[in-house]
Design a binder for these strands. Structure first.
Length: 310
DNA sequence: AGAATACCTCAGCA
DNA sequence: ATGCTGAGGTATT
C-alpha cells in the first residue's frame, strides 16, 4: 500500500474557508469526499484538505498526460487569488459598513476565486432563474457528456470542463443539452459557445480581456445570449478581475431591502422584477459603500443570506 | 423607460 | 399525495 504524500499550501483558514467558499455557488464543480474537496484544475484532479494554518493538497494527473508537470502552487495561488489579503479587506469593509461588521465574524474566509473565463461564462449562463443544487447537477452532466475524462478518485470519474468548441461541434448539442436538463438555457449555451469558438478561431482568447476595464468587459459579455446584467457581473467578478463588480441576485435584493434600505434609497418596490436602471443604481451605491473590492463584500453578504444564520 | 410575461426543470414544502 | 412556489435571470413584448 503506497503512502500518499501531501503538500502544504500556506494559507490560513481565516484567508479561505473551503467549506464555505467551494459549495457556495462560485464554482459548481467541487465535490466533498469526507474532509476532502476534489475538483479538476488545469486538467488535473486536485484534492484539498483544510487545516487551521494551511491547506494540504495533492494531485492526480490525467493518465494521458503523466509526463506533463504542473506547478500546482502557482495554480492554487492563481485560483485562490492569494495576492489579495482577506483580513485587510474585511477590516476595510467593517470600517465602511456597520452591518458588514456584525456578520463578518460569523462568515470569515470568504474570498472570490479567480476562475477560467469560459467555464465561468458558461456556468453562469446556466445559473439564470435556477438553484445552486440544480446548476451543480447540470454542470456535472455537461462535463460528463462533453468534457474529457481525466482520472478517477474514490470511485468517482472526473472530467474537464468542455471547451466552447466541444459544445458547438454540431447543432444536435442543443437537443443533447435539453436532454441533460438545461431547459431553455440549452440554446443560450450553444449560441454562446459558437460565438466564443468563432472568436477564438480568429486568434483571440477570453483571458485577453483580463486587464480591460470593468465597463469594457461587461459590455463584451452582455453581447452573448443568455447574459444579462447579473450574469455579466458574476463573470466580471469571478473570472476577469473586476473586483468592484457587484452582482445583484434575488438574495442580494432581499438583503438590500432588509438591511440597506437607507444606503441604497430604493423607491418603494413598484415592480416584481428588477429593472436595468434600478439594478445599476443599486450596484453603484454598493460600490460606493464598499469600495474597489465591493464584489468581495457582496460575496460575504450573499453567503450570509444563503446560510440564513442570524 | 418601465412593467409584465414566457421560458425549462426541479427541489422544497404544504 | 399532488400541486405550488421559487430558484444567484434573460429576452421579448
Amino acid at each position: 500500500m503506497n503512502k500518499v504524500t501531501w503538500n502544504q499550501f500556506k494559507i490560513p483558514i481565516k484567508e479561505v474557508s473551503l467549506d464555505v467558499v467551494l459549495p457556495s455557488g462560485q464554482s459548481f464543480r467541487w465535490r466533498q469526499h469526507g474532509c476532502e474537496w476534489v475538483s479538476v484544475l488545469s486538467g488535473h484532479i486536485i484534492i484539498l484538505r483544510q487545516k487551521e494554518d494551511h491547506i494540504l493538497y495533492r494531485t492526480i494527473a490525467s493518465t494521458e498526460s503523466l509526463t506533463t508537470s504542473m506547478d500546482v502552487e502557482s495554480v492554487l495561488n492563481d485560483y485562490f487569488n492569494t495576492s489579495i489579503k482577506l483580513s485587510k479587506l474585511y477590516r476595510d469593509f467593517g470600517a465602511r459598513d456597520a452591518y458588514f461588521q456584525t456578520i463578518a465574524p460569523l462568515f470569515s474566509g470568504i474570498r472570490i476565486l479567480r476562475q477560467d473565463p469560459w467555464e465561468t461564462l458558461c456556468s453562469f449562463i446556466c445559473s439564470s432563474n435556477n438553484s445552486i443544487k440544480r446548476i451543480t447537477q447540470m454542470i456535472e452532466n455537461l462535463c460528463l457528456t462533453f468534457g474529457t475524462y481525466v482520472a478517477s478518485y474514490d470511485g468517482v470519474a472526473y472530467y474537464t470542463f468542455p471547451r466552447a468548441a466541444d459544445l458547438c461541434a454540431d447543432s444536435s448539442a442543443v437537443q443533447r443539452l435539453r436532454a441533460l436538463g438545461f431547459g431553455y438555457r440549452a440554446a443560450y449555451v450553444y449560441k454562446t459557445a459558437l460565438k466564443v469558438h468563432n472568436w477564438e478561431l480568429s486568434g483571440h482568447k477570453l483571458s485577453e480581456l483580463r486587464g480591460s476595464t470593468y465597463q469594457d468587459v461587461r459590455e463584451f459579455l452582455l453581447e452573448f445570449p443568455g447574459v444579462g446584467p447579473k450574469v455579466a457581473d458574476c463573470v466580471c467578478l469571478m473570472a476577469f478581475d473586476c473586483h468592484g463588480s457587484v452582482p445583484i441576485d434575488t438574495h442580494m435584493w432581499n438583503i438590500i431591502q432588509k438591511r440597506y434600505a437607507k444606503v441604497v434609497k430604493i423607491r418603494p418596490a413598484k415592480s416584481k422584477t428588477l429593472s436595468k436602471a434600478t439594478y445599476d443604481d443599486i450596484s453603484s451605491h454598493l460600490r460606493a459603500l464598499w469600495g474597489g473590492y465591493a464584489g468581495w463584500a457582496q460575496s460575504v453578504l450573499f453567503i450570509s443570506e444563503l446560510r440564513k444564520t442570524p
